[in-house]
Design a binder for these strands. Structure first.
Length: 271
DNA sequence: ATGGGCACCTGGCTGC
DNA sequence: TGCAGCCAGGTGCCCA
């Protein structure tokens, strides 16, 4: 599901509806997520006001003051704002009712997602504490990535998807960024030259920024805070395009598995 | 510390 | 039409 662009698009589409609002009540229809939604959560959330909606990695953070309501969407999670109430459907897990009548509804068929209420500073919670830099942060540059990868023997694509190296890059955008940088996904990370690592930093930023501009990628489940699908999947150069002609050189796109994840590349544009 | 593989769960698609 | 098998955007955890 959601990689950084999808979580960020959700954040942007939801924030105008929820910032400054007070939580009237919470209904949990099915607490079975990656970690069970605590029975005490509705009582703890009731009456709290949402000061801001932030994102860290693929986590969405609703700042409540002393606590933060944290969502992770796993593979199939989505969060949307309902302006007019409707009865919960299959896989709708939680409704958060706001003081203006809007409903924040969490939907997650595969239930790999999470909903947690954590004390501030939430950045120090073990789930977030070991995360690497944000891709748009200044600290994520060629020098940093070179240092982070120079001793890593794993495939460059797997290293790029390692949250300790850089956050937010999942299976779609790892393939897309490596295509843009001209690097084959299976190459050992430490064997990629310093110059190409620099190009990869730019490629990661460009790919993620373009996907955010397109409202994220919708392969199956993803919708933004308004319930709308994204369009970034229409602009993928390699992901999901095995056998189709490369958009640059027309060579057939190839697929191979790395760490059990499908990885797509152009055998001509990437070396 | 790093790497590899599995597990968690549901639904959609393919091929027999 | 039915059904088994495979696959899917993530990541925590176990073992080498």
């Amino acid at each position: 599901m959601p990689e950084l662009p999808e979580v960020e698009t959700t954040r942007r589409t939801i924030a105008p509806h929820v910032v400054g609002r007070r939580i009237e009540g919470v209904a949990v229809y099915d607490p079975r997520l990656r970690w069970p939604v605590p029975a005490s959560l509705p009582r703890q959330l009731q009456g709290q006001s949402i000061a801001a909606v932030d994102r860290r990695s693929k986590y969405l953070l609703f700042r409540l003051g002393a606590q933060t309501l944290v969502f992770h969407f796993g593979m199939t999670g989505s969060l949307r704002v309902l302006r007019t109430p409707s009865p919960p459907a299959a896989h709708d897990h939680v409704d958060v009712a706001l003081d203006d009548g809007a409903i924040l509804r969490y939907h997650d068929p595969r239930r790999f997602g999470a909903m947690l209420l954590l004390p501030e500073p939430v950045a120090e919670h073990w789930l977030l504490a070991a995360l690497g830099p944000e891709p748009f942060d200044r600290s994520f540059d060629g020098a940093y990535l070179w240092r982070a990868l120079r001793s890593r023997t794993a495939a460059i694509k797997l290293a790029l998807m390692d949250n300790r190296v850089v956050v937010g890059v999942g299976n779609i955008y790892a393939s897309e960024a490596l295509f843009r940088a001209g690097i084959r996904p299976a190459v050992s990370a430490r064997r990629v030259s310093r110059a190409r690592i620099g190009r990869l930093v730019d490629a990661v930023r460009e790919v993620l920024a373009a996907a955010i501009d397109s409202g994220g990628s919708t392969l199956r489940d993803y919708v933004d805070g308004g319930g709308r699908p994204g369009e970034a999947q229409l602009r993928h150069f390699v992901y999901g395009r095995e056998g189709l002609p490369c958009r640059i050189c027309s060579a057939p796109i190839r697929m191979r598995r790395l760490g059990a994840r499908a990885s797509f590349y152009c055998p001509v544009c990437q070396t």
